[in-house]
Simulated assay, not measured.
Amino acid sequence: MFDFDYTFHWITVWNVLPEMLDAALITLEVAVLSMILGLVIAIFLSLGKESENELARTSSIVWIEIARNTPALFQIYMAYFGLGAFGIHLSPYVAVLVALTFNNAGYLAETLRGGFSSIPNTQMSASRSLGMSKIQTYWYIILPQVLRKVYHPMTNQMIWAILMTSLGTLVGMLELTGKTDQLQSLSFRTFEFYLVAALMYFIMAKSVLLGSRLLANRLFRGDA
């Protein structure tokens, strides 16, 4: 039933730990880039969903609904395999980045929309009466307040992005999970490799959470 004579060989993992750390950096890189790009797109999607322009509103709604109501794995497959049917061949890295950006943008758009709706309309009127353009009002007055309100949900989304990069292994991306799978297949020390990988994911997630709290204490020190 159970093999209690299992002998751990941690030295096997230790010898290739630098390779796993490099793969973890790729994981962080993809997660951070997908969050930055996703946030930029999400700002336009959240505003577009409330726009009076039918094309902008419809396009935003379609993007958000697809991103939020289909599996992230499906989105990665569409970016990697689906676009290939149209002659667009992306590398595993780019495909995962595109898919996670698409997904993050959809979720962040709804988060931002909640933030925008919490800002009183009188602020726009007051800013316009002072001679500021609509773009200036959004950039200098409204958007900073919105980002402050949605700061913590964005932190959760960042952690989610880090964990979801693991799906990239299914299209051949050698991020942390992909590299771990490759390395353990050479030695068959499955338990040791995946335990160390899980610990690395845990440390990355907790580091983001801790860093977020420290940054929030610094940025929002004067908040009630």
Rank of each mutant, 00 (worst) to 15 (best):
E19Y: 08
T177K: 01
F81R: 03
E50M: 15
N15W: 13
L174N: 11
S60M: 08
A99Y: 02
V16G: 03
F74S: 07
T27P: 06
G131P: 04
A126D: 02
L112I: 03
L47M: 13
A23K: 01
D181Y: 15
F191N: 11
S51F: 06
P92C: 07
M204G: 08
S127I: 01
F8R: 08
A56Y: 13
L90I: 10
P120K: 00
T111Y: 01
A67Y: 05
V171E: 02
E175S: 01
T165Q: 08
A216E: 15
F74L: 09
T169F: 14
M204N: 09
A72L: 09
L215M: 15
M154T: 14
L183Q: 02
L100I: 07
M20L: 07
V146W: 05
I203R: 12
I66A: 05
A205T: 14
F74D: 04
E29M: 11
T111I: 09
V16L: 05
A198R: 13
T177Y: 05
I43M: 12
F81V: 02
A23E: 08
L17M: 13
N53D: 14
A72G: 07
I61P: 07
H9Q: 08
E29L: 11
H152D: 12
L73Q: 03
L28M: 14
P71D: 05
V171M: 02
L21E: 00
P120F: 06
T7A: 13
V13M: 00
F86K: 03
I26S: 09
T137I: 00
N69L: 06
P71N: 04
E19N: 10
A161M: 06
P153V: 05
V62P: 08
L90W: 01
Q182C: 01
T155N: 12
S212M: 09
V32Y: 07
P153N: 01
E29G: 14
G106E: 03
S118H: 03
L90V: 06
L90G: 01
P71Q: 05
A67G: 02
I135S: 09
G168R: 00
L215S: 13
R189T: 13
T165A: 04
W63G: 05
M132A: 09
L199E: 12
A224S: 15
